[in-house]
Amino acid sequence: MPVRRGHVAPQNTFLDTIIRKFEGQSRKFIIANARVENCAVIYCNDGFCELCGYSRAEVMQRPCTCDFLHGPRTQRRAAAQIAQALLGAEERKVEIAFYRKDGSCFLCLVDVVPVKNEDGAVIMFILNFEVVMEKDMVGSPAHDTNHRGPPTSWLAPGRAKTFRLKLPALLALTARESSVRSGGAGGAGAPGAVVVDVDLTPAAPSSESLALDEVTAMDNHVAGLGPAEERRALVGPGSPPRSAPGQLPSPRAHSLNPDASGSSCSLARTRSRESCASVRRASSADDIEAMRAGVLPPPPRHASTGAMHPLRSGLLNSTSDSDLVRYRTISKIPQITLNFVDLKGDPFLASPTSDREIIAPKIKERTHNVTEKVTQVLSLGADVLPEYKLQAPRIHRWTILHYSPFKAVWDWLILLLVIYTAVFTPYSAAFLLKETEEGPPATECGYACQPLAVVDLIVDIMFIVDILINFRTTYVNANEEVVSHPGRIAVHYFKGWFLIDMVAAIPFDLLI
């Protein structure tokens, strides 16, 4: 008679799926529990143990900040960024110097990925580790590398530091407007667009060049630039800015003055950032001319202004700041037409079709709590990747769950009947059967004279019903998954307890 339990259901295979997918890609990662103190490590794979030199037993239950890997060259700011990422709910990448158990130093890129439950609360953290440099290539500990984003994938490793954006290309926007319009339909740009040429040739750093990471940081200074100062900065030398009595002219307006920039070969870094931020506020060169004239017309309804409409929906549905990093990277690809469009465009503009998908598509409701890094690593669709929660398995109709209350009560009843059979069957065979043979035949009273025979008949009927119930009862397979398919249940029961239950259900007393 089957006594099969499996009270692990309803099970959740999400954690096993993450481990299996990460292991298949030869990654070095740990999984931490966000619900406990210090976000203790609950799993670390073999790749991480080989990377740091510690065994799994030495890593388990330690804080996922990996303070046991810190050393003299470990930056405090990087460690603080990892700790801050564990307090938030967004994906974050941090470069930090770690030390192995043998004392060797290596520069590592740590990717902190939160995993949320159905309520939107962070319950786990996945920390992925990628070695960037070994100890002989690690720089000085005073050099802070965590304020910069990861290198873009479309640049060669040897040319990542030679990417320079020439400031004269930004200063000569109005001069290039006529050349853009003359391109017409034969050019790649839309009317009114501004073409910015980027020099990728390796050259020595000069005062006129600005690194790509500095251009990325310009967006942080746009908020500090007032509207009046932006307007004066875009007017140009024809209309000098008016300053109040006793007030000095704005240095932001002076930063885009061609006369002032041409007199000296070098520009201050602050002026460069502010000038680029001011130019980015204009949607095209037409807006710059309109600002000089004193009238700013409404933005025209053409394809170039609607190019950012799908980007707005993608940004609203993005799951991490990696989408913004990807957008900034692609927006700086050289030799393309940049349409400086305000994100607050007309909502009635139709979304044009684009061959290049900048932001990841909208994630469906079932995966809105899973970050983009987890979705990318697992390579699963929205119909396959579940949320991290207890999910009731989908069972067929008329199927009994093996952990249901009805099955528990039924098993206790069958257990009592088995005990009765084990006690009274030998007793009936030894004593009652002998008395029946010696006594007179009682054929007239039937079952009324033999109450134990009636009980034995009921017990046999219950055993037959138990066999039928076992054909529709779920079970737990070797992978700790609840199986509810009727065919698989029948095959599993035939290979197991079916023969024993059938022999126990045969009414031998009635056959004798």
Results as ranks from 00 to 15, higher is better:
Ala80Arg: 13
Ser179Glu: 06
Val94Tyr: 01
Asn220Met: 07
Gly6Val: 13
Ile126Trp: 05
Gly47Ser: 11
Lys93Ile: 08
Asp16Gln: 14
Ser354Gly: 14
Glu274Arg: 07
Ala223Asp: 09
Ala193Thr: 05
Asp259Thr: 14
Ala156Gly: 15
Thr371Cys: 09
Gln81Lys: 11
Thr329Met: 03
Leu225Asp: 10
Ile363Val: 11
Pro237Glu: 14
Gly53Phe: 01
Leu343Arg: 14
Ala32Met: 01
Leu165Lys: 06
Pro240Met: 15
Asn45Ser: 14
Leu248Trp: 15
Lys93Ala: 13
Ala303Leu: 12
Lys344Leu: 09
Val279Arg: 07
Phe29Gly: 01
Thr152Asp: 05
Thr17Gly: 13
Asn317Leu: 08
Ala34Tyr: 03
Lys93Gly: 09
Asp355Leu: 10
Ser264Lys: 08
Pro114Arg: 04
Val377Ser: 04
Gly47Thr: 06
Arg326Glu: 09
Cys49Gly: 04
Gln81Arg: 10
Ala40Arg: 11
Ser153Arg: 09
Ala169Leu: 03
Lys344Met: 12
Arg56Asn: 01
Tyr54Ser: 01
Ala303Ile: 08
Leu87Gly: 12
Gly314Trp: 05
Thr74His: 01
Gly71Asp: 01
Cys44Ala: 14
Ala293Gln: 08
Val194Asp: 01
Ala190Trp: 13
Ala175His: 05
Arg73Val: 09
Asn38Glu: 14
Ser255Lys: 15
Phe163Ser: 14
Thr13Asp: 11
Thr319Glu: 14
Gly224Cys: 05
His254Tyr: 13
Pro151Trp: 13
Leu316Gln: 14
Gly186Asp: 10
Tyr54Asp: 01
Thr337Val: 07
Ala188Tyr: 05
Glu118Met: 11
Tyr327Ala: 12
Ala89Tyr: 14
Thr270Cys: 12
Ser331Trp: 05
Ser243Asn: 09
Gly306Ile: 12
Arg356Phe: 12
Pro297Asp: 12
Asp136Lys: 15
His309Arg: 09
Leu167Lys: 05
Arg273Tyr: 12
Leu380Gln: 04
Asp259Gln: 03
Ser304Trp: 14
Val113His: 13
Gly53Arg: 01
Leu296Gly: 12
Ser55Leu: 02
Pro334Asn: 08
Pro10Thr: 12
Lys21Phe: 04
Gly24Trp: 07
Ser255Gly: 07
Cys44Gly: 01
Ala80Lys: 10
His368Lys: 10
Met308Thr: 06
Gly53Leu: 05
Val113Thr: 08
Val279Glu: 13
Ser284Asp: 09
Lys93Ser: 13
Leu212Gln: 05
Pro334Lys: 07
Cys66Phe: 07
Val131Tyr: 06
Val115Gly: 02
Ala89Phe: 14
Ala169Cys: 05
Glu214Ala: 05
Lys101Met: 01
Gln84Met: 14
Thr375Met: 04
Pro227Gly: 07
Glu90Gly: 08
Ser179Asp: 11
Val112Cys: 06
Gly184Gln: 15
Val374His: 15
Gln335Ser: 08
Asn45Ala: 06
Leu385Trp: 07
Pro300Ala: 11
Cys44Pro: 01
Leu69Tyr: 01
Val122Tyr: 03
Ala78Lys: 05
Cys44Asp: 01
Ser239Asp: 14
Val8Ala: 14
Pro245Tyr: 14
Pro386Glu: 04
Asn12Leu: 11
Val36Asp: 04
Met137Gln: 15
Val279Asn: 11
Leu69Thr: 01
Asp323Leu: 06
His254Met: 13
Met137Pro: 07
Phe68Asp: 01
Asp144His: 15
Ala9Ser: 11
Ser26Ile: 01
His147Thr: 09
Arg56Pro: 09
Pro72Trp: 01
Arg159Asp: 11
Val341Ala: 15
Asp355Thr: 14
Gln335Ala: 12
Leu267Lys: 08
Arg92His: 13
Arg73Gly: 11
Leu51His: 01
Val122Gln: 05
Leu86Ile: 15
Arg20Asn: 08
Leu212Trp: 09
Leu109Met: 06
Ser26Tyr: 08
Glu365Ser: 07
Arg356Gly: 10
Leu225Thr: 06
Asp286Pro: 07
Pro157Tyr: 01
Val94Pro: 01
Ser318Asn: 12
Asn317Ala: 10
Ala83Gly: 07
Val132Cys: 15
Ile123Met: 05
Ala57Met: 12
Asp286Tyr: 08
Val8Cys: 08
Ala277Asp: 06
His302Asn: 11
Ile330Leu: 11
Ser140Asp: 06
Gly184Val: 10
Gly6Phe: 12
Val41Ser: 01
Arg100Pro: 01
Met291Tyr: 05
Ser239Arg: 07
Phe106Gly: 01
Leu296Thr: 04
Val341Leu: 06
Gly187His: 06
Ala203Ser: 06
His309Ile: 09
Ser275Leu: 05
Pro241Val: 14
Asp67Arg: 05
Ser351Cys: 13
